[in-house]
Amino acid sequence: MAESRREAVAAAAGDQPLELILARNLVTIISLAAFLFDAEGRLVFYNDAAAEFIGRQFEEVGVLTREQVQAELGPLDRRGRDLPADQVPSTIALEERRPAYSRFYIHADRGLMQIEAGALPLIGPSGLHGAMVVFWAPEE
């Protein structure tokens, strides 16, 4: 095939690195709510358990930029203000390349909701590819 067509096909597909593909395969079959972020901080997938918190399936929402994530989901403090970046597990995982944990609030299906979240950077042989964030409602 012509090289230009091949490049166009690949660009249209926006093929993901294997680390994200395998992480997505995992989170689609676990019952713990999970987000997947790419290396640029875009929310590129969340699973059915996360959709129960949010009230919408990922297919309805699609990929969100870092700014769209903040506007639509959070994270927020108890008064609904943006959480400082150094307290956001996904940001810590992507920028500091280490696991991180925090408790904060998000815009959920039923209003502001407190969650606990743990983030894991997805680092492969060729570098950082994203982060997986699992979250849950804390025990009262």
Partner: peptide, 16 residues
């Protein structure tokens, strides 16, 4: 599933 999320697709798309 979207092609972008299929392992190996980036290498194999439109192979001769």
């Amino acid at each position: 599933d979207p092609a972008a999320w299929i392992s190996g697709h980036a290498l194999a798309c439109d192979s001769s």
